[in-house]
C-alpha cells in the first residue's frame, strides 16, 4: 500500500504524489468549511455591519479633520482599505472559536486520527478563511461604491486586492488557531480575542498613517502583519492611493508570517485533544 510508495516510485514522482496528497487534503477541508459557510451565511452579513459604521459614521466625521496626511486621496478613500483589512482581521481572529467548538464535539479527534497531514488540516482551515475574506471584500466594494469612493477598477489590481485579502485572512485565522490550541476554552478565547483585536487595529496604519504615530507605536506597527495588509491594499484598491512599500514586499512579509504561523499551528493542533 502507501507505505511501499517511496521505494517503488522514483523520488520525483513520490514527491509529486506527496504534493497531490496535500492538495487533496487541503481542498477537502476547505470545501467542507465553505459549504457550511454558504449554508448559513448570517455571519457574513452580520460582519458587514461594523465596516458600514466605520466608513459611514467615523469616516464621514473624520473627513472634516484636515490634520491627517492622506496623500492625493480623501480621508474616506484613505481609510477604506484600512476598514477592509480591519473587517478581515476581526472576522479571522475569532476563527479559533470554531476550532474549539469542533474540539468539544470530537471533530478534531476524528481529523487527527485520519492519516491526513497535520499541515494540510491547518492550511485547509486557512484557505477557507481566505475565501471568507473574499466575500467581505465584495461587501466593502459595495459600500465604497455607495459612498462614491474612487475605486481602482484595473482588473489586475483587483486580483491583487483579492490575493492580499486572502493571504491576510489566512494569516490571522492561523494566528487565531494557535491561540485556540493554547487556551482550549471558548470563554478564555473570547477574552483574549477581544483584548487582541483593538490593539492590532490601532497599532496599524489602518485609519492613520504610520508617520503620525509616536516612535514606540511605529515600532509595534512595523511588527504588526495588519500594517502590511493595509499597505498592500492602499496601493491598489483606491484610485490615486499610495503605499509605503512595494506590493511584492508587503505580500512577501505576509506570506512569511503565514508560513511561520502555519508551522507552529501544525505542531500545536494535535495538543488540542490531549
Amino acid at each position: 500500500m502507501t507505505s511501499a510508495r517511496p521505494a517503488e516510485l522514483p523520488a520525483a514522482l513520490a514527491d509529486a504524489s506527496h504534493f497531490l496528497d496535500f492538495f487533496r487534503e487541503i481542498t477537502a477541508i476547505a470545501q467542507v468549511e465553505l459549504k457550511k459557510l454558504f449554508r448559513d451565511p448570517t455571519e457574513l452579513f452580520s460582519r458587514a455591519v461594523q465596516p458600514v459604521l466605520w466608513l459611514v459614521i467615523f469616516g464621514k466625521v473624520f473627513s472634516k479633520v484636515r490634520g491627517i496626511p492622506t496623500g492625493n486621496v480623501s480621508y474616506l478613500a484613505f481609510m477604506t482599505p484600512g476598514i477592509l483589512a480591519q473587517s478581515v482581521l476581526f472576522t479571522a481572529i475569532f476563527y479559533g472559536i470554531a476550532v474549539i467548538w469542533e474540539r468539544d464535539l470530537g471533530i478534531v479527534h476524528k481529523l487527527l486520527v485520519s492519516p491526513a497531514h497535520r499541515t494540510s488540516l491547518v492550511i485547509g482551515k486557512a484557505v477557507s478563511a481566505g475565501f471568507r475574506g473574499l466575500v467581505q471584500t465584495f461587501i466593502i466594494y459595495l459600500i465604497a461604491l455607495a459612498l462614491r469612493i474612487q475605486i481602482n477598477w484595473n482588473p489586475l489590481d483587483i486580483l491583487g486586492v483579492l490575493f492580499a485579502v486572502a493571504l491576510g485572512a489566512a494569516t490571522f485565522s492561523t494566528f487565531s488557531l494557535i491561540i485556540a490550541c493554547i487556551v482550549k476554552s471558548r470563554e478564555r478565547f473570547m477574552g483574549i480575542g477581544q483584548v487582541l483585536t483593538m490593539p492590532l487595529f490601532f497599532a496599524s496604519n489602518a485609519i492613520y498613517p504610520l508617520a503620525m504615530m509616536p516612535n514606540w507605536l511605529q515600532v509595534v506597527a512595523v511588527l504588526n502583519p495588519l500594517t502590511y495588509l493595509v499597505d498592500a491594499l492602499r496601493g491598489i484598491m483606491i484610485r490615486g492611493g499610495q503605499s509605503v512599500h512595494p506590493l511584492p514586499l508587503d505580500l512577501a512579509v505576509m506570506a512569511l508570517i503565514l508560513l511561520l504561523l502555519a508551522s507552529i499551528a501544525a505542531k500545536l493542533y494535535p495538543t488540542l485533544v490531549q
Binding site: 502507501t2 496528497d21 487533496r24 487534503e25 481542498t27 477537502a28 477541508i29 467542507v32 459549504k35 457550511k36 449554508r39 448559513d40 468539544d104 464535539l105 470530537g106 471533530i107 479527534h109 476524528k110 481529523l111 486520527v113 485520519s114 492519516p115 491526513a116
Partner: peptide, 26 residues
C-alpha cells in the same frame, strides 16, 4: 475511531461527512 462525543458534523449531510473522510483517507 469513534470518539465518545457525537463527532459527526451537524452542518453537513451524512453523505458529505463520509466524503470528507474518504478524501482524508486518500
Amino acid at each position: 475511531y469513534v470518539p465518545q462525543m457525537l463527532s459527526a458534523d451537524g452542518a453537513l449531510t451524512g453523505q458529505e461527512n463520509l466524503m470528507l473522510s474518504a478524501k482524508l483517507y486518500g
